[in-house]
Design a protein around this nucleic acid. Structure first.
Lengths: 140, 140
DNA sequence: GTAGGTGCAAAGAGTTTGCATACGC
DNA sequence: GCGTATGCAAACTCTTTGCACCTAC
């Protein structure tokens, strides 16, 4: 898994530094979108001299080579990051615990075509997010 | 139109001040989402002593009483504002000129139910945005 | 007249940048 | 060894807040 990332980075002219590998690991483990600050916090123990600006700069690079995707949710004013998924997916976002559930499959494709025709609009991408409460938080 | 807003404000314990009415007017006229800064800029001529913080504070109040909705688009890091629509709508966002086209009708309803069942997730609201290029910008 | 609204300036959050040093390849 | 990556501090942008004055009702 990590070796894959290493190669991908090198193939795209980026060095596979400790910091970057650790950040990718954190993003890989956690099932939330993470803010730069959160990534920083979860690494500061292992890498005591890591700096927040390195996290920002790394996210920028990783986004550029397509390993990471940035997201702006309505529930947070910070930019959040997740590993890019090759498969198109949508998100269920828990408004209580911020957990993000990925859902594959997409109900929008045919709608997109219809819209494109009706409004002479060239659709490049779309974003569908469902906000609500996950099983655990609803039962509380 | 404006009288409606006046009553709505008063009914919700807010005063119908000149500033607020002008802001609602700007939001009503323009067919983009507007940032606080843009609202400020389009009013500064008529209201030379308006301050940006008043725009922020007004948006906050107007959002609270439901006249205005805040939006975080992927294309802007600022919070943008639009008049709340009683009718559920989705958005086509032009990545070139930032124009926003409102589209009524929603393909997500049945999908939502299916998801709710599959993932034991209580959906409260959703957001669907299509990013691409409007007719004018595509032909350029 | 009074409570809520506003302008101004200052403070806060989140993010970016300049520069000298360190590290991957 | 070369060039990218990093740490630190400072700058920057967007947004919020404190306080004295003002205005809608």
């Amino acid at each position: 898994m990590l070796a894959k990332y290493q190669n991908w980075l090198r193939d795209h002219g980026l060095k596979a530094t400790k910091n970057r590998m650790m950040m990718l690991e954190v993003l890989d483990e956690d099932h939330k979108f993470l803010s730069a600050e959160e990534i920083y916090q979860s690494l500061i123990e292992k890498a005591s001299n890591l700096s927040l600006s390195t996290v920002y700069r790394s996210m920028e690079s990783l986004v550029e080579v397509g390993l990471v995707s940035p997201v702006n949710l309505e529930t947070s004013k910070q930019t959040l990051y997740e590993l890019s998924h090759t498969e198109h997916a949508h998100h269920l976002i828990c408004m209580s615990c911020q957990k993000v559930i990925h859902v594959h499959g997409c109900p929008v494709a045919s709608y997109e075509k219809q819209i494109a025709k009706e409004h002479q609009f060239t659709v490049r991408e779309h974003k569908l997010e469902l906000y609500g409460y996950c099983q655990e938080c609803s039962t509380k």
